[in-house]
Amino acid sequence: MATSGHVEEREIFTCSICLEQLKSPRSLPCLHTFCFQCIREYILSTERLSGHKIANYMCPVCRTIVMPEHPELDTTKWVEALPHNFTISSLLETSKEQQTQECHTCKRKQKCISATKWCRDCSEAFCDDCREMHSLMKSSMSHEFVDIASIPTNECGIDFSKISDVCPVHSSKVVEAYCFDHEELCCVLCVTLQHRKCVDLKAIEDITRKYDEKDSFDAKWTKIKSGSEQILQKDLKDTLNKSFSSIESTVIDSVNTAKSKLDSLLVVFLKELKTIEGKTQGDFESKLDFVEKLSNRIKDFVRISTFIRSFGSKTQLFIHIQKSKKELHSEIDNAAELLRHFTGVIVNFHLENTLQNLMEMKKLGEIQVVEKRNKSVTD
């Protein structure tokens, strides 16, 4: 019954789009609740795919047709007006306050006793009595314990039981090796049956000895994080705005010296300038958003890795890093490509020199948008 209750609780607090705990929960008229950013992006992406402003949309869960309460407003405006689910927000806060760690040994005996100690070697919680019994056993008398009260569980939200050392193929075995050829965790059976011919196969025990200090893998994350922060810290957007403003002023000053024909050309030019500015600003901001999201993702990874290194086992740290590396592989490649080819934007304007031939002029000049590349950021 306890397990069922936990599953039901997780479902209530989980966003059906991102499958994570709800953040700023917003409800649709069909009563399904989602993270505000998730439902906002879902509706806006639906509108972008349609190519025009939509009159209605479907709930991502039940597919019920939902009509905006104020269809005359811009889509982003009425999405922001979706009602906040304060009931879910309140339950989330209450759930956080009531969470306590139970003793795993007592739980297997169908008892519910709060744990006081955490065994880093076993990755299990113990009450005082079970901890004492655990320390008396020859096989576990040297295990290292920490006070559960000293573990900042809410800081990272880490559940060490989810970083399992059970073999993903043979559930009765634990992982003991890692195959770098196939990038897979292996138990003894996996090594014997599937990785006999692999060249780069190492025992996790040997590998984890190198994780006592931050290794080169952590250093690579730090470099990417540093590079992305350099872009975010630069006042590139303000410089871009000043560039466009400078071009506009230059053109207006030039046009003011010649009236009739230049007045009509000025209108055409400013329209072209604003169009290019809008497109460039959109591309520029989307790249900055990508870098900012990557930076936040890296910060989360470093924060969680530090937490596991402090309170988890070396095997769990290794497993966490390998899983994270595989999950973020494509994002790292995209980030490297972005940082390699983008550190800012240069806007140039070439003014026509033959202003004497006013009646024959067809344009005032050309606008060029050039992205600066800074190799030092991506080295």
Rank of each mutant, 00 (worst) to 15 (best):
Met137Trp: 04
Ser226Thr: 13
Val7Pro: 00
Phe318Gln: 09
Pro68Glu: 10
Glu205Ala: 10
Pro71Ala: 08
Lys197Phe: 03
Lys375Asn: 09
Leu44Asp: 09
Glu9Phe: 08
Pro60Phe: 00
Val174Leu: 09
Leu28Ala: 06
Ser310Cys: 07
Val345Phe: 08
Ser295Gln: 08
Thr208Pro: 01
Ile247Trp: 02
Lys259Leu: 06
Gln368Arg: 13
Ser114Met: 06
Leu338Lys: 10
Phe311Trp: 12
Gln21Tyr: 14
Gln281Gly: 03
Glu292Leu: 13
Ser164Met: 07
Ile308Pro: 09
Val268Leu: 12
Ser139Tyr: 04
Cys15Tyr: 01
Ala219Cys: 06
Leu358Trp: 07
Arg40Trp: 00
Thr3Ile: 10
Ala258Glu: 10
Thr33Val: 14
Lys271Thr: 12
Thr250Cys: 08
Ser24Thr: 07
Ser45Glu: 15
Pro29Ser: 15
Val255Glu: 01
Leu19Arg: 11
Lys287Ser: 10
Glu183Ser: 12
Gly51Leu: 08
Ser142Val: 04
Asp165Pro: 00
His52Trp: 02
Gln21Gly: 14
Thr87Asp: 03
Cys130Ser: 02
Ile65Phe: 01
His195Asp: 02
Ser245Glu: 14
Leu288Ile: 15
Ser305Gln: 10
Leu294His: 08
Thr14Trp: 01
Leu19Gly: 04
Leu351Trp: 01
Leu364Cys: 02
Glu213Gly: 08
Ser142Pro: 00
Cys35Phe: 03
Asp147Tyr: 07
Glu41Arg: 11
Leu328Tyr: 11
Thr94Glu: 12
Glu360Phe: 12
Gln101Leu: 14
Met67Arg: 13
Glu292His: 14
Ile367Ala: 03
Pro152Arg: 00
Ile113Ala: 01
Glu9Ala: 13
Glu277Trp: 06
Tyr211Ala: 02
Leu262Phe: 15
Lys259Ala: 09
Gly227Val: 06
Glu155Leu: 15
Val188Leu: 09
Ser27Tyr: 04
Pro152Cys: 02
Ile231Pro: 01
Phe311Leu: 04
Phe342Ala: 00
Tyr211Asn: 12
Pro83Ile: 07
Lys375Trp: 08
Gln368Met: 13
Gln110Gly: 05
Gly344Asn: 07
Met361Asn: 06
His182Met: 06
Leu193His: 07
Ala258Ile: 08
Gln21Pro: 09
Arg373Cys: 11
Ser249Asp: 12
Gln233Phe: 01
Cys15Arg: 00
Ser139Ile: 10
Val199Gly: 03
Ile332His: 06
Ser216Leu: 13
Leu236Gln: 06
Lys363Gly: 09
Ser150His: 03
Ser161Met: 05
Met133Leu: 14
Asp181Ala: 04
Cys167Phe: 03
Val255Gln: 01
Thr378Gly: 05
Gly365Tyr: 05
Ala149Asn: 07
Leu358Glu: 09
Ser16Leu: 03
Pro152Glu: 00
Cys186Pro: 03
His70Ala: 14
Leu328Thr: 06
Pro83Trp: 06
Ala203Leu: 11
Thr75Phe: 03
Asp238Asn: 14
Glu144Leu: 11
Ser264Gly: 05
Glu93Ile: 11
Val347Ala: 00
Lys138Tyr: 11
Ser139Met: 10
Glu331Gln: 14
Leu240Asp: 01
